[in-house]
């Protein structure tokens, strides 16, 4: 997506001498850009640099220089390695499930189903619901004492579950799938609508079955969308904070100790700002690598 940005803008004409008109244009442009640039400098790039500097210090006031000590500490920290593994499981689990479900729903909705707009709208609602609502609501529904889900299961003759103690991570993945599948569906629907109908007709003329049309026309042509959804999905899951904070408290026994929740605990509960900054930077590096992959592959598709 990002790779295609500059196409529509006219290429600036290179002249040896700047005319007064052009200089005036440049002045105006800089004046218009100034507020945004100052904002990004102060609230994005300064924090980015500051976070790195802080990551080189230890102590409650982050004033004891330790070089890369926080980073080596992180690599040796079993709790951190565990949190990272849990976060990856969570991110991949939520991603795979919501992609499969979202793709199925998008393919069905793409067949001029009656009431398509209504269904699409309904599916998108949880995505626009605050994580605070989502977290608290599901904690109530799943609660062993007051939760309604187990009661419904019992009434239906199904076994009851200790959701948050026996399968905590799977439960968080389920909540995330509930929240983001509609969003994934809408992205896939947009991708499906970008596939020219001609391809399907050609495949049908060749006698391809519905399954073969899906397998050899839809899936390959949907690959850019799938990649986009995957990277966006993983990047956002790696940053999940509210669910462990509101639903499980990271437990039981660290089973849902997602990385940003760990960063939050390290900084705002234990006041170990230097170490927390180093942890943030480690996650940032992972996310940057993913973003670069997306840029590179996106570029290849754009050209």
């Amino acid at each position: 997506m990002v790779a295609t940005l500059d196409r529509r803008a006219p290429a600036p004409v290179r002249t040896r001498r700047r005319s007064p008109m052009r200089r005036r244009q440049a002045r105006t442009a800089f004046a218009f850009l100034a507020p945004a640039l100052v904002f990004f400098a102060l609230l994005f790039f300064y924090p980015l640099a500051n976070e790195f500097v802080t990551s080189l210090f230890a102590g409650a006031r982050a004033d004891e220089f330790v070089g890369l000590g926080n980073y080596t500490r992180a690599f040796g920290d079993a709790q951190i390695r565990h949190a990272f593994a849990v976060t990856l499981q969570y991110g991949l689990g939520a991603l795979v499930l919501s992609i499969v479900l979202g793709l199925v729903l998008a393919v069905i909705l793409n067949q001029n189903l009656r009431g398509r707009a209504v269904f699409r709208g309904i599916l998108l609602v949880p995505y626009l619901t605050s994580v605070a609502i989502v977290g608290l609501l599901w904690r109530n529904i799943l609660d062993p004492q007051v939760g309604v889900l187990n009661r419904v299961l019992a009434a239906a003759g199904l076994p009851q579950q200790q959701w948050l103690t026996d399968h905590p991570l799977a439960t968080l993945i389920g909540i995330t799938v509930w929240q983001q599948t509609g969003y994934v569906t809408v992205l896939f629907l947009a991708g499906l609508q970008g596939i020219p109908h001609l391809y399907y007709e050609a495949a049908a003329v060749d006698g391809a079955s519905v399954w073969r049309r899906f397998r050899h026309v839809t899936l390959p042509l949907l690959a850019p969308t799938t990649l986009f959804v995957s990277i966006i999905g993983v990047i956002s899951s790696l940053q999940e904070f509210a669910l462990p904070y509101l639903v499980t408290g990271g437990g039981p026994a660290g089973a849902t100790d997602l990385f940003v929740f760990r960063v939050y605990q390290t900084s705002f509960a234990f006041r170990d700002f230097g170490y927390a900054s180093a942890l943030s930077y480690l996650l940032l590096i992972v996310i940057l690598v993913l973003s670069v992959v997306q840029l590179k592959v996106g570029q290849r598709h754009a050209t």
């Binding site: 940005l5 990004f40 940053q239």
Partner: peptide, 16 residues
């Protein structure tokens, strides 16, 4: 430069 800020997630900014 402006677009690169998309790659700076909130959790990196929150502590500073």
């Amino acid at each position: 430069v402006v677009l690169s800020t998309l790659m700076i997630p909130f959790f990196v900014r929150m502590i500073p």
